[in-house]
Design a binder for these strands. Structure first.
Lengths: 354, 354
DNA sequence: TTGTACGCGTTATCAG
DNA sequence: CTGATAACGCGTACAA
């Protein structure tokens, strides 16, 4: 039965159509219905008679047919995909957000295209461009500031975008995250309230990281409101390593007079600072208070649990997905988009030494 | 003589063409060339004359045209995407692997579709089905055992698949990862060599986790080779929490005679065990040796750095990508696919108490 | 409720 | 090296 299709004879025109049907047509033929009916049975089952529906389902199952997303996307102008570009997955709460994002998209029949920018705006732009070629229906980005080319591209494409891990009241519905600045304003104010006056800061690099920059601004604001500021020798910037934090911590503590409180830019920087403090024989919080940002399990399990700011990464992912899907599907978007940044007070913070 | 109807089209054809062209055709028209030439200028620049190439590039830039991946996929039968299903991103080395995977794919012009199965074979199957509909060119999975329906689906689709975080010499080129069984065989043998005879195990649940099961088997093998075995009261299974590990650790240590060494199924279980041991006032390794699996930074920074098995997650991601791309692109695949599992001896392991 | 026929935007195959 | 044109597989007005 494979003998049917004749080879293209030189004299003959084009081999018009007598080929064995595939895909949708094969299903339609096997079920004895038209392709339109099969299509409807899949996409709008309620409009096809019960009998046909089950018959078609049986044929699809039997043939093991899987609809062709490319063909479908071509005609519907919808790919059913959403692109997300994170700075990285191996630090911060981005993996958790990606996880939640993906799960939420699944419920609405969408799929996640995932990429990392490595904190490089140029790479972020390229990744988004690739996503655009793949026909994503929407985009999840991190932070509020992007490459100028990226901004132009997004305007041209008119693609729904949600910026995450930031919150900008001026941009309702396009940002989902905590108010980084206020979070560190509050945390710093809390320490000032305890009586601290000399602060050390082990910050994340603010290079291409507007969230980190905002948090630093929050610290400055709070200190400034009390006529305070950190000394240059008490300020250090690092990436996100425990070992790195230990080194930076030593450097800060070498500059007299020592600070009585250390603000750390992320969880691992705080863990490193505390481990080094304990290794140096310092009492926490007796000699020194240590606070961090982000809450990971180890922070509450160390010998001296660390005070920190908790922002639920999975909550950000979930809300961002819902917000984006609302825009894509043209639905109203009821969710609020500011995610709470909650100060979790633990044993590592207390009054300064007398 | 053209007035008569063309070939066998009885109904009046409606050549609705006076619409302004879009996409490729718009570019072609603006550049004064054919669509074929524009297409070639993009996909095989070397066969288009220098002059046309630059002219076309200018037009593309000016119009801000982005090729339509759906249309391209429809005709080439290639989507330029690869699907990956991880159990989760917020545990183990999966996020690191995803990160590396994505970067490696980027270099070859491919994009990553990412999903999580939550250790549920049924969900894994559904995710792969969705990927199939999206037209992925290949698939990255974790582990070697999958839902029967998934196995059948993969056979039918003839989709290249790489199973990661496992290594099976019998399946060359389809598995990329460590030999889990041998890794824990070696680690356990190392402890036996130190003189340990009574072992506790805080294992990861083996439910839908063949890697964890293999590792347990490795432990059993090594113990059995010396006529040893773990007592039921010294065996506990958990997921992956520090707090959980502490509780399990207490339970194990409550059963006399206490073990002199604890084998932990992953990094956080080991961290939890050690923190609890120190909190209980036990000397590590004086009273008790503790070893883990996977190497995360905190393990080497704790007061007593923890002996563990290091498997480079990013290496797995990178190699899996290369292996899969080789199959997709029909290239020879030179890489080896067993990733080394290296025992990193630190202070937490030593001879048993006398 | 079901079937027919067209078109989505691109690439491949030819013929020039 | 370039141009014309037929598919690619599906969704959907429109007709029946």
């Amino acid at each position: 039965m494979d003998e049917t299709s004749p080879p293209p004879s030189p004299a003959g025109p084009k081999p018009r159509s007598p080929r064995t049907p595939k895909g949708l047509r094969a299903v339609a033929r096997a079920a004895g219905v038209s392709t339109a009916t099969v299509s409807r049975a899949i996409n709008r089952p309620e409009v096809v008679s019960e009998e046909l529906r089950t018959r078609i389902a049986a044929v699809i199952e039997h043939l093991g047919w899987v609809p062709d997303g490319a063909a479908r996307a071509l005609v519907t102008r919808r790919s059913g995909t959403v692109g997300a570009v994170f700075p990285t997955l191996i630090q911060g709460d981005f993996a958790r957000a990606a996880n939640a994002l993906q799960r939420e998209l699944l419920g609405e029949g969408h799929t996640l295209l995932m990429a990392c920018s490595d904190y490089d705006p140029e790479l972020e732009f390229r990744q988004v461009r690739i996503f655009a070629e793949r026909g994503v229906d929407g985009l999840i980005l991190v932070g509020g500031t992007h490459h100028p080319d990226l901004v132009r591209l997004l305007e041209r494409l008119a693609l729904p975008v949600v910026n995450t891990f930031v919150f900008d009241p001026a941009n309702p519905g396009r940002t989902v995250g905590p108010d980084n600045r206020r979070a560190l304003f509050d945390l710093t104010s809390y320490l000032i309230g305890l009586g601290h006056r000399r602060f050390g800061v082990i910050a994340q690099s603010t290079r291409n990281n507007d969230r980190a920059a905002e948090r630093l601004a929050g610290i400055r604001d709070a200190l400034g409101a009390h006529g305070l500021a950190t000394r240059p020798a008490h300020h250090a910037e690092g990436l996100s390593g425990i070992a790195e934090a230990r080194a930076l911590f030593r450097r800060i503590m070498a500059a007299e007079p020592r600070p009585t409180a250390i603000l750390c830019g992320n969880a691992y920087l705080a863990v490193g600072a505390e481990l080094e403090a304990l290794a140096m024989g310092l009492a926490v919080p007796g000699d020194l208070s240590i606070v961090g940002y982000d809450d990971i399990e180890i922070m509450s399990e160390l010998p001296v649990p660390i005070t920190t700011v908790r922002v639920a990464g999975d909550e950000i992912g979930r809300r961002a997905a819902r917000c984006l899907l609302a825009r894509i599907l043209g639905r109203p978007d009821a969710d609020g988009h500011e995610c709470p940044a909650e100060i979790v007070v633990r044993a590592s913070s207390g009054p300064p030494p007398a």
